[in-house]
Nucleic acid binder design. Structure first.
Lengths: 202, 202
DNA sequence: TTGCTGTTTGACAATAATGTCAAACATTGC
DNA sequence: GCAATGTTTGACATTATTGTCAAACAGCAA
């Protein structure tokens, strides 16, 4: 059999990942992706059945990558605060590396192309619900201990998510409002950890 | 001349507003909008030149509405904390009334249909930049006073925006994760004010 | 060389959505 | 009634994009 000597497939994946999740151009056509990869459009259909399948692959890769990073520490025996700090670190890193992943999920959920169930299934691990419940319990304990302000565990979790995700999601807007360059905004994101912690803990 | 006795135009606007910003189905076709309004598709083009123009109108209405509400108090002489509280109130009300407006801006920014400049121009008032600067100054004063945690004014502003906008933007996701009905989520949003304040102030 | 398998190409078909247009219709003023 | 103006309709043209397919091509094995 003829060996696949050229790395066409990888070139396509890389180009797509870059365009979609680094540049945030979700509407990019298969033609644009093919051009960026330096191949003909038909090859996208040859290696992946459709545009959607290509997406799936990239998305799954990103999710698995993040999952792996989080799993180790989240289930470890470190303190609540340590866990949150690590969580923030991982999330900020993701925001810097693939800034538009979250924005994509949001967009697609609202487009109706993916319904929320599918989105959640895609970005969540199987046993998400039990994990969420366990996490909410932990938060409750912390509130009793007095390390975080008194509020419902749900509010705390939503606050945490918001503080982490929105600066990435609304990146283009903030850049314009604050008249920041790409580089400046990345620096801004990179230093947010302290401000996030101050918003979360007493 | 024949008087426009039927309110076709209004019906279209209402249907579009509902589908786009209450249901969040941004991809809805002109046909769907026409159906919802109970008119033929061609009438969308008759009353508004194109689908985009229709969007513009609705978006502008929403913006002007919110602007009006904010302007009065923001420029008044109330305290910083009072201003923020009012800001939160208005924003939450908007989240309940037209929950998908922000998600739309985000989506469209990233779709590349609107570039960030246009988006910001659309949702911002003319003199936004001076207002932003004035607001950042106010934040700085508050930090010196010690009413809010020590961080850059930018961080504070981004925290504020995130805590307000993200729960609306990511609404479909949160509903699924927390297994909440529409009504339950609305109730959750309605009670968030205290939790937001606790995250912002010392 | 010949044949096999995987790869690449260009042309084509299918689909989905938007916007246009001429003609039909309705309402009002005269 | 009948012009005149605004409204509504259905058919059509246009455009953009995706996916398919048969044929050409390249490398390896016998």
């Amino acid at each position: 059999m003829a060996i696949k000597d050229s790395n066409t497939e990888k070139q396509i994946v890389e180009a797509a990942r870059h365009i979609f999740f680094k540049e945030g151009r979700f509407k990019a056509t298969t033609q644009e992706i093919a051009d960026a990869a330096g191949v003909t459009r038909t090859l996208l259909n040859y290696y992946f059945r459709s545009r959607d399948v290509l997406f799936e692959k990239i998305l799954q890769d990103a999710r698995e990558n993040m999952d792996a990073k989080l799993k180790t520490v989240m289930e470890g025996s470190s303190s609540f605060r340590e866990k949150i700090e690590y969580f923030i670190d991982v999330f900020i890193e993701q925001s810097l590396n693939l800034p538009y992943i979250d924005a994509y999920m949001i967009s697609r959920m609202n487009d109706g192309i993916l319904n929320p169930d599918e989105v959640v299934d895609k970005l969540a691990t199987r046993d998400m619900h039990t994990k969420v419940k366990r996490f909410l319990k932990e938060i409750e304990t912390e509130i009793e201990k007095g390390t975080i302000p008194h509020m419902t565990p749900l509010d705390f979790m939503v606050n945490l998510s918001s503080l982490l995700a929105y600066p990435g999601v609304a990146q283009p807007m903030f850049k314009k409002i604050f008249q920041m360059s790409d580089k400046q905004y990345r620096q801004f994101l990179a230093q947010r950890k302290a401000a996030i912690l101050k918003a979360l803990f007493k």
